[in-house]
Every structure is written in C-alpha cells, then in structure tokens.
C-alpha cells in the first residue's frame, strides 16, 4: 500500500465516522458493526440515508405485534429507561443498554447477533432489518 492509498483510506474512514451521529463513546468495534449494518442497509435499499437515533428511540419504546405475548416491547425487559438496568422475566438483572452506562454494549459481533436474533423474534416475531438494528445502536450509543 503506497502513501496516497493510505491517505485515501484514512480520509474515507474519518468521513464515514463523521457521516454518522456522533456516538457518546466511539469504539472501533462498535463502529465496525455499524459499518456492516450500513452496508447491508444500502444493499437492501440504495436510497438508505444513514441511521437515525429518533427512529431508534421510537422502535425501542414501541409496542410491537407479531412476537411472543409476554414480550411485546424492548421495554418489557430493558425497562423504559435504557440508562437503567433491566430485568429478565425470570428476574435476572440486565445491564443497561445505554453505552454511557455500559461502554461494552454493541462491541461484540457475536453477542449483538445473538441478542438481536433472539429478541427480535421474541418481540416482533421476525428478524430485524439492518436499519432497525442500526437505528437501535445509534440511539443507545447517544444515551
């Protein structure tokens, strides 16, 4: 890789960071996850114009249908306030989703995939779209 290539790559990376809503605690692993989701979103819809914290907040608080009856919403277990700890239906503490309270949130691909996989099915009865996931992460990164 020559020097001009390097500069081009760095500027591209910094550009991609700026183009997103500024996360409270930027983390390269989380950014990579978001980048992958953005790529997926663009593939599904070429008109995709970036993730939105407002959409993420609405998605988080909404009562969904189509999922399992005991878990109609993210807030069923994660509580209304994402900076607070939640509780599973069996009574186990769930660490806050808000990145400001829990900086390791959304930094491990396997964990992110596992929990979106399970919980989207439990709450919505389907897989979440890349846009929904990205919005969700962006919202909670700023929380």
């Amino acid at each position: 890789m020559n020097k001009s290539h390097k500069i081009a790559l760095i500027s591209l990376l910094s550009l991609s960071n700026v183009s997103m809503v500024l996360p409270a605690a930027a983390d390269p692993a989380r950014d990579a996850i978001l980048a992958t989701l953005a790529e997926e979103a663009k593939k599904a819809d070429p008109a995709f114009g970036g993730f939105s914290a407002e959409r993420g907040q609405a998605f988080f608080a909404a009562k969904h249908t189509g999922g399992k009856p005991d878990t109609p919403s993210c807030t069923s277990c994660h509580s209304q306030d994402p900076t607070a700890a939640g509780e599973t239906r069996a009574g186990k503490r769930i660490e806050p989703l808000a990145v400001s309270k829990n900086p390791s949130r959304f930094t491990k691909v396997d964990e992110v995939n596992k929990w979106f996989g399970r919980n989207c099915n439990s709450v919505l009865g389907r897989e979440c779209t890349a846009v929904e996931k990205g919005d969700f992460i962006i919202y909670l990164s700023g929380k």
């Binding site: 399992k68 239906r89 399970r118 919980n119 099915n121 439990s122």
Partner: peptide
Amino acid sequence: LDEHFGEDASLP
C-alpha cells in the same frame, strides 16, 4: 430453544 418458556433463546 426458540420456544423457550415464551421467549426465543436460540444459541449457536
């Protein structure tokens, strides 16, 4: 595990 006491608890 995808029908685990009212929740999806699937594992790899």
